[in-house]
Design a protein around this nucleic acid. Sequence first.
DNA 1: GAAATAGTGTCTTTAAGACAGTATGTG
DNA 2: CACATACTGTCTTAAAGACACTATTTC
Lengths: 253, 253
Amino acid sequence: MNPQTRPPAIPSPEESAFLQAYDPQAFDRPSVTVDVVLLALREERLQTLLVRRREPPFKDQWALPGGFLHMHESLDEAAARILEEKARIRGPYLEQLYTFGDPKRDPRMRILSVAYYALVNPARFLDPPLPSDEIALACLRVPWIGEQGGPAEVRLFPESQPLPLAFDHAEILDMAVQRIRGKLDYAPIGFELLPPSFTLLELQKVHETVLGRPLNKDSFRRRMLATGRLEPTGKIRQDVGRPAALYRYLREA
Amino acid sequence: MNPQTRPPAIPSPEESAFLQAYDPQAFDRPSVTVDVVLLALREERLQTLLVRRREPPFKDQWALPGGFLHMHESLDEAAARILEEKARIRGPYLEQLYTFGDPKRDPRMRILSVAYYALVNPARFLDPPLPSDEIALACLRVPWIGEQGGPAEVRLFPESQPLPLAFDHAEILDMAVQRIRGKLDYAPIGFELLPPSFTLLELQKVHETVLGRPLNKDSFRRRMLATGRLEPTGKIRQDVGRPAALYRYLREA
DNA sequence: GAAATAGTGTCTTTAAGACAGTATGTG
DNA sequence: CACATACTGTCTTAAAGACACTATTTC
């Protein structure tokens, strides 16, 4: 990066004087929360982490894990903190999704939500047993395929009724699924939902579950191996049928 | 907001310890601005709208057009308002880009920037003549191809020196170019930079300028016509050489 | 007619899909 | 052995790229 095109680190004396006189409370401001769509794969289903609200509005309904942005932390740090607080997950794949700012999205007051989505291997957070009354990994059913929008449905158990979500969290969830589906086509992020080593068929099942449609096995193998980012670990998974080679994902180019 | 509930500006050592332990700023609010990367195409160059800052910080430097979010408007409305205020442009293609929230991105205080990008046909805003001292359509030069990141350089004239931008606006600009390049591959948004009717070669030149690389003419024509969203207007552009059919973009599926 | 751009037809190349056939484990 | 899954090879199909050729204008 060219330093010439970047702002100077130290303000001039003139600017320092201005900064001291500045009243940061001069204007009214919205509150800012960070909400996280955590996606994980369990039992061949896409699942998402929900927490039950203990206070109005939407008391006792389910919502995405979230919290207010602290003044000293970046947005990325806030998202990571919230995931660690609510689900004890550290260092997952985490990416900013969209910022939701409808003036009426929270009935109390003006609150922006900077939404993130996280992909995680569920083995990493089965430590505190789920589900409970407070927090649950809910099943996600997305009745549409491809990248177009559509309502995602969320259930506590595969056969129970769809849950209504608090605020505009259903919309946030929709966008998270839409985003990951679109991204899966050109970025091999499916492995983020798997343990460090996995077979090609496991990776394909991940893609199929996320995309909601079957994939051609031959071309999937070819495409994945052609990326050059899958390295055989040398080990073998013996399950049923012929043993399969285990691969590891190479993050560096 | 009641100022009494806020901590004093300069806490005593004892209070500092309290503040650190209990993080009272956790419920303080950041300011929120909306900044817009306006992209237009003039003279076969990608250009972006910049305004000169009249106040510190970064006084007299160029910045993206932006402003504080009003409490009654949505983020989309704020972006549209800012574009109309700064450049008198109404109803352009406008899409949220990313939210920038580094705690130190503004030296005054904590300010989030919800960034948008807009695509517009420059014929629509040559009404107030540009450039001036206050506002300019600056040339964009992006020395990298494809969708990977890289520093975008901005100049007032094609041959002048690159301008430093205020705050983290260079980073925002980088991401806007990255986003539109990625999107061009699967969404035919090039026509947003053109007048309502255009020839296929004009559309191809737009794609080439944005992507920074030449495209195959035959396959570009085929791909565009195969989308089924280009409708011949029946009219003809006579310029030099054989006249070309003019097309209009069909927004509905 | 020369130059320039528009548009068509077709061959080659490449990637995806389909599918047969072989390999190697389990019971 | 049957069965299940892993992997290879090859044929077909569809899209992209390359390129030759014709068409229609301006000069």
